[in-house]
Design a protein around this nucleic acid. Structure first.
Lengths: 352, 352
DNA sequence: TTGAAAGCGCTACCAC
DNA sequence: GTGGTAGCGCTTTCAA
């Protein structure tokens, strides 16, 4: 029923081996022979059997990109950039050397993260890219470390993108980490510089690395400015979702009606903050300054007054893709910091 | 080096066939035998070889979800919902029956769309879900039709989600289509009902089905209201991006300074419209009403004055996933309309 | 209920 | 440069 390599060989009057060589293009073949084979492929409308090929070669062209939440453009931008770089410019279908870059949505669930890695391991994936903040649970870290080690030993390239390094990172080819601490610190310093003293902080889920790092940066800035009131009072944790920003802001205003600024752990959350403030009749930035993280495109157009750290999401994704493809050399030690740029928009004054 | 099924068999003192049966769970095996096998699997930390399995069984557990732009939450929401439904609730790694649902980002390129389908065909994918508007180029439609036909004949389930039916759709299991015409019509009627007569329209790329359908709905409403000025004058085409909404609005205001409302082909574009209007010193909705499509979450919190059609993205995605998994019956004839709901927010007045 | 063995379609090694 | 061919690791009859 389906056309096999042997059929092509028969039609082109060559051996299966030759057809394989032509298709993989990694072996010298006479020009006219190649021509004949290619014609036979076309005429028979032959499509390589991936599983058979992977089985024989003990590798596949699958590359998995894991993200925490694909509905969030933070991940969409990174994953899209990585995928573009990996799939190549034109998506040249013929050469046989193209990879199938594919996005896997873990929904932030540790089990699903491991499950996807197992599934990719099953498929003998060529590479795996892990993006975004990691869970800090010791058990999960150990499991991940073990799993990534197995993958690496089985020949799968592992790249971390916008994600902190693994505790014992030698199973990882390279890590592209964002400077979450520094970004949060600069953001807070900016608000302090404007004269703000009562700054609320909407943090992410407690168990994620990004949450902790950003919060640390925030507190470091506060401490340096001599603000030493009980740290927890103006910090509220929530998920990385709009609704969380909304709820947290209501809570913060209840705790401290004299709030003059709110810092959100990411842009999506910042929009929820804005919504809550607007509903309370407070104006941005006249009454309350809001600062986000990420610099997502929709936030840019929407709230010109929102100060953010512009994380180079697309660039990080593209670099991850290039690392996977070997187009970019892995750094010595495997770790690269990817700093964000502080973006100040509009005038963010202090309520008098 | 790597553990194989034979190793497991040896350790469990059974034949490879029995191990296979235990792992696939679709065959009667004595309880204690199964127990022994499972223990051996655990002890040896065995991971099934996907390619070998796929080769022997002539199918794989790969499901591809194609999207036009993964950085756009429109697709992120649909794809995420589909993936969740397909990967199952807990992502039960053991059962062996779980699918690997992966997202492929075509970037709206017809070549990449076909390339991805070929790659998935190579992998003998169990199913393919195509999402979002399709290209109307006859050549591409023919190529897609042929490709999908081959996939279907090779046993791959094909589901269309938020995408119009194929011209000759019998290669497709089911189509979940949005009512783009009706939605645009209702949106326009709403603005007309408020008294607007000079309504700008920011359309998507000319060659996409969603663009044409939404535009048709818009014009039908205008026509019904007796507005018959040259249709092109207040319509500007662009990509489905914010920047496009911005540019188009500047252009529209130049053509017709007396504009009182703008309808955007999707929410992302609508945000660009808002940005341009704000920059021009026009207030929303006092001066100009803006209407979008999609009802993306970030637009909800951001512009409470934005009127949109709430497309059931997550629901459509989830249903597509269920269709793939056979948890939901495919409709007779394969086509299902998924209607949007008109959402009116804030007061959208008319400039006097 | 279990085992033996014949492939699945391709790659890669070894001859020629 | 090209052909022959032995596996790759699993599934699935067919027998027992």
């Amino acid at each position: 029923m389906t056309v096999t390599l042997a059929d092509v060989a028969a039609r082109a009057r060559v051996s299966p081996a030759t057809v394989s060589r032509v298709l993989n293009g990694n072996y010298p073949v006479a020009a006219d022979t190649r021509e004949r084979v290619l014609r036979a492929v076309d005429e028979l409308d032959y499509v390589l059997n991936g599983p058979a090929s992977s089985l024989a070669a003990a590798t596949s062209d699958l590359v998995g990109i894991l993200v925490n939440d694909i509905a969030d453009p933070f991940f969409g931008i990174m994953a899209g950039a990585a995928q573009t770089e990996i799939s190549g410019p034109g998506g040249s279908a013929r050469a046989g050397c193209e990879k199938l870059a594919v996005i896997c949505n873990t929904e932030g669930s540790p089990e699903r993260e491991l499950t996807y890695l197992t599934l990719l391991q099953r498929q003998r994936a060529a590479a795996v890219v892990l993006t975004g903040g990691a869970l800090e649970d010791p058990g999960h870290i150990a499991a991940m470390s073990a799993k990534l080690g197995k993958l690496a030993r089985a020949g799968t390239t592992v790249v971390l993108c916008g994600r902190p390094p693994m505790p014992d990172g030698d199973q990882v080819l390279a890590t592209l980490a964002f400077d979450n601490r520094g970004g949060a610190r600069r953001l807070t310093e900016h608000l302090l510089g404007l004269g703000h003293r009562r700054i609320g902080y909407v943090a992410g889920p407690p168990e994620r690395t990004t949450t902790r790092h950003r919060l640390e940066g925030h507190r470091a800035a506060l401490l340096a400015a001599g603000i030493d009131e009980p740290q927890d009072r103006l910090t509220v944790h929530g998920s990385y979702a709009r609704s969380s920003g909304y709820t947290a802001t209501v809570e913060l205003l209840a705790r401290e009606p004299g709030l003059t600024a709110v810092l959100a752990a990411n842009d999506t959350v910042a929009l929820g903050v804005c919504a809550a403030l607007r509903e309370k009749g407070l104006r941005i930035p006249e009454d309350v300054s809001v600062a986000g993280f990420d610099d997502l495109p929709f936030a840019v157009d929407t709230w010109p007054a929102l100060t953010t750290v512009r994380l180079p999401l697309a660039e990080a994704g593209a670099r991850a893709g290039r690392l996977v493809m070997g187009k970019e050399a892995a750094p010595v030690g495997g770790r690269v910091g990817v700093e964000g740029e502080l973006v100040v928009r509009g005038s963010t004054g202090v309520r008098r």
